[in-house]
């Protein structure tokens, strides 16, 4: 898609010495799941790709260079840029040490959806409102709605608004009603016991791989409470209460700070519906504290301030 453009940008930035390293994507074991790739020399630019499978958010990798000299360039989509905004608001990254190469994002594909539509899919290209998937199984033309990541279907911020340079023209957001509200509402409609049962079942599958935390731009603590020995907020066993604790804490720690990037859910190997937790909190934060677009990081997080006239339910 934009592989050439990203390579050119990397070469230029590294040659000009504007940045000392460049974070982009490179093909992984399989072209539909690219890896983050760091290069430090212009010659390495050839390794980079930028295609419709570049879903991974690179923002959080900036933390790896927190203590190293020099400016890091990073390729960010609209949603990823919110992740960077999160890191900036959390004072985890200094803006002047980052060069944002923004990708006005046409939407990224869900590799599972794509693979279901065309087993062995290797590549995808956009044609209008459709995607053409190609692979060992031949070629197949599918509607964007069938194959995009859920988050991209409702993406409000495809173009990073804080980029130092853009790889292409800005793309407008998709004003699609938020389906996730329905998912939250469905759960809310259950009885308490049913919800308990639902979550117990979901959480029981979690293998505590911590991928969700590790990828999350809001979970950017230097040392996570889950790794603490004293107190041991999270017991080592993975019984029901511990699983509940883990998910309660993770979600609550990003409440009002989650940028709605869906990365946690995307990377979860066990398909735990983490966004149903995040969205519940996001909705409540917006409703209770009268905020709009609470997923956009702000100077002070919603739980770091108050209003004397906040709803009073506790008299």
């Amino acid at each position: 898609m934009r592989s050439e453009a990203v390579r050119a940008a990397a070469r230029r930035l590294l040659e000009e010495g504007k940045v000392v390293r460049f974070l982009g994507h490179a093909p992984g074991f399989d072209p539909t799941s690219p890896f983050p790739q760091l290069i430090t020399r212009a010659e390495e630019a050839e390794r980079l790709v930028l295609d419709h499978f570049c879903a991974p958010n690179l923002a959080k990798y900036l933390l790896d260079y927190e203590t190293q000299e020099g400016v890091t360039a990073v390729v960010l989509k609209g949603c990823d840029a919110l992740g960077l905004a999160r890191l900036l608001a959390d004072h985890r990254v200094a803006r002047d040490r980052v060069w944002v190469v923004g990708l006005p994002c046409p939407g990224m594909l869900d590799r599972d959806k794509a693979a279901a539509l065309l087993p062995g899919v290797q590549e995808a290209r956009a044609e209008g409102d459709e995607f053409v998937l190609t692979g060992a199984g031949g070629e197949r033309r599918v509607a964007a709605g069938q194959v995009l990541l859920d988050r991209c279907l409702v993406c409000a911020v495809p173009t990073p608004d804080d980029a130092d340079e853009l790889l292409g023209e800005p793309v407008p957001g998709r004003p699609v009603p938020r389906e996730e509200d329905a998912a939250v509402a469905a759960l809310e409609a259950m009885t308490s016991a049913e919800r308990k049962a639902y979550w117990t079942e979901q959480f029981s599958r979690c293998i505590r791989c911590m991928a969700c935390r590790n990828v999350c731009p809001a979970c950017n603590c230097r040392s996570c409470c889950f790794d603490s020995e004293e107190p041991r907020w999270l017991s080592r066993v993975t019984d029901g209460p511990a699983q509940e604790m883990f998910h309660f804490v993770r979600a609550l720690h990003v409440a009002g700070r989650c940028v709605d990037c869906h990365e946690c859910e995307r990377v979860c190997p066990m398909d735990i519906p983490l966004m149903k937790l995040n969205h519940k909190l996001l909705q409540d934060v917006e409703e209770l504290f009268e905020l709009e677009r609470a997923f956009v990081p702000r100077e002070v997080e919603p739980l770091g301030i108050y209003r004397p006239d906040d709803p009073e339910e506790f008299a």
């Binding site: 308490s192 049913e194 339910e313």
Partner: peptide, 27 residues
């Protein structure tokens, strides 16, 4: 005030996880 904010959210979230919100009170 911070307590109130925090627990407005937590009360609902506990309930969402299946811990009936009537079991939690802030007074």
């Amino acid at each position: 005030y911070f307590t109130r904010r925090r627990f407005l959210l937590v009360k609902r979230f506990l309930d969402y996880l299946g811990i009936d919100q009537r079991r939690f009170r802030l007074r």
